[in-house]
Design a protein around this nucleic acid. Structure first.
Lengths: 343, 343
DNA sequence: TTGTACGCGTTATCAC
DNA sequence: GTGATAACGCGTACAA
């Protein structure tokens, strides 16, 4: 009186292997998990059976029994932006090296809190033991906080790329590097095209840009807001082009710099002769812009590696595994900056 | 005599919900899966209990019982290339819309067969019901074929972005669009900078480029090989610059075009006055290159959507769900092409 | 070093 | 419309 008809075409299970190898399922389990305490030739027999049957551990069953899934989740904004993608590479590598798989949930650019929570939920329900937040979330929302902090109901570990002290790239340092470089070249002030205001990085860079100018006794001009896209950089470029004495610009991403420089060129201002530009990221194409971009490099892959490493350590309850990659920004000087013209 | 000490801090289970709502677990299951056949107020009671307890379905348990995981796997090369990333966006969207999650396994650029198989295995072991192959795999290898075809041991569905007839972007059409445009402008021949030879696309485009030229009675010049990177495009550019009568180039990606154009400029050849360039992809920065790139657009997001849609249909055993997005390439004319100089 | 027995949390089946 | 019960395939505890 079986309440479910047995499937005859089902995948080979531990029992099948055990039977074929003439051992108990427990021994098969021990061999598969490589935990030792099995005589060499017993193991060999098991492995032979595994091979013959094409047996593979059933992840769902294993995870149900052990309570572990070895899955990481990542939440990013539309993944075709260079930073998200490069981050992913580092995360992937580290996860794979430690036997974890990674599931990604992408949310739209200015996703609502609901969309974000939905992504979060999907990842958790699916069994992610830890989640990397690669998005700029405002932790003010109570609903978000309820999920972002661990509760009895949501028990995955969390790590946030713009909040976790050990991971954060020093955004103020990025702005300082850029502004000091420009000032050092002899420019009287530095204009600033910011990224999307929803991002923590944006505010941090803007503040540091402002502070650095003040430290030099310079009153900061107004920020020109943009949103990371080349299009927004182009619009900012038209604004800058209309300001005759703007000779130096700190723009918050390489992609925006492409747009900005084009707008400048169209307005008859040359870079770097008329205006110097330093941007942020050092994407692969930065060296091939016209002119090649002077930019502050952000080590996205290393950030990804560091985040994954930390998260896995958290999950496994130890302090650190392997060496934490450094995440220091670095100024790469190319051809989009020069001293201001004599007048 | 419990062989395992009961954890008191464990997450709420179906049983807890059932108890609180005063129903059976089966009813909870029915409510959670939304399959109906539950009286409205019973459902309400269950939902209230779910809410109070913060209950969430345990994916591993559900999948063990049902045999379904609703997980998709994607194998791509190091995901910071624009095409992989954009593909991912489309896949994500479609997967999420259909209740699937997606796990990604990245392999290095010229990954060995072993590395590829390793990625494949990880995804399958983890329970992927279908796998999207976004990498250029040579199906010649027996080991690969054994995995790539379904066997009793490996039972996930497969779909390959460069093999599955319904998905493939017509690579020959891309090359034809580019070459015809250049020839139509009056150029006598068209040089070709190819992508990485490991990619199916590369061969298909090269062949179509050659054929198109022959159709016009032109003997094709030698292919200049490259590997998708801007650096390789730069090297190809130096080669082209050394050929005085080269006035038109079909280069297989926008990123290479950036490198190519820079090399040309450095050699004193201007684009498009001295040499016209048409590339492929239409990445976000293409419109902001100097000059803006004339390029053949590949609809990566749509390709991703189409792939996910097809794969899900395969998994669920029906023919098609929703409308298949079109994946036709499209020539975008900007400023990197012009008629050849009079001489 | 190896085997036995149970339980992980859910869904499927059938009876009511 | 609802409930009882048997799987699903594995890891864990403990005995041998």
């Amino acid at each position: 009186m079986s309440p479910r008809r047995p499937r005859e075409d089902r995948a080979p299970s531990q029992v099948d292997v055990a039977k074929l190898a003439g051992v108990s399922t427990q021994t098969v389990s021990r061999v598969m998990s490589g935990q030792g305490n099995v005589r060499a030739d017993t193991a060999r027999r098991v492995l032979a059976a595994v091979d013959e049957l094409g047996y593979r551990v059933h992840a769902a069953a294993a995870s149900l029994a052990s309570g572990r899934t070895r899955q990481l989740g990542v939440i990013v904004v539309s993944t075709d932006r260079y930073s998200s993608a490069a981050l992913g590479v580092g995360i992937q590598q580290t996860a794979a090296a430690n036997g974890y798989t990674v599931s990604t949930a992408a949310v739209a650019d200015h996703a609502s809190v609901d969309a974000f929570l939905e992504a979060f939920d999907r990842l958790e329900r699916q069994g992610a033991e830890g989640i990397i937040l690669g998005v700029p979330i405002e932790l003010e929302s109570p609903a978000l906080r309820a999920r972002t902090e661990r509760t009895p109901a949501t028990r995955s570990e969390r790590i946030s790329l713009d909040q976790d002290a050990a991971l954060v790239v020093d955004q103020a340092a990025i702005a300082r590097l850029a502004v000091e470089h420009l000032l050092g070249l002899g420019h009287e002030t530095v204009w600033h095209v910011s990224g999307d205001v929803y991002w923590t990085e944006t505010r941090q860079r803007s503040e540091a840009w402002e502070q650095t100018l003040r430290d030099h006794g310079i009153t900061p001009p107004p920020v020109i807001p943009a949103d990371w896209t080349p299009e927004s950089g182009y619009r900012a470029g038209r604004t800058i082009a209309a300001i005759p004495d703007a000779t130096a610009v700190f723009v918050s991403s390489d992609e925006m710099a492409f747009g900005l420089i084009r707008a400048l060129h169209e307005a008859g201002r040359s870079v770097p002769e008329d205006v110097s530009v330093v941007s942020v990221d050092d994407i692969a194409l930065a060296a091939y812009a016209s002119p090649a971009l002077t930019t502050v490099r952000q080590p996205f892959e290393d950030m990804g590696r560091a985040a994954a490493l930390r998260l896995i350590a958290q999950i496994e309850g130890h302090e650190a595994i392997g060496e934490m990659p450094s995440t220091d920004p670095q100024l790469i000087i190319r051809s989009s900056t020069a001293p201001p013209r004599e007048r």
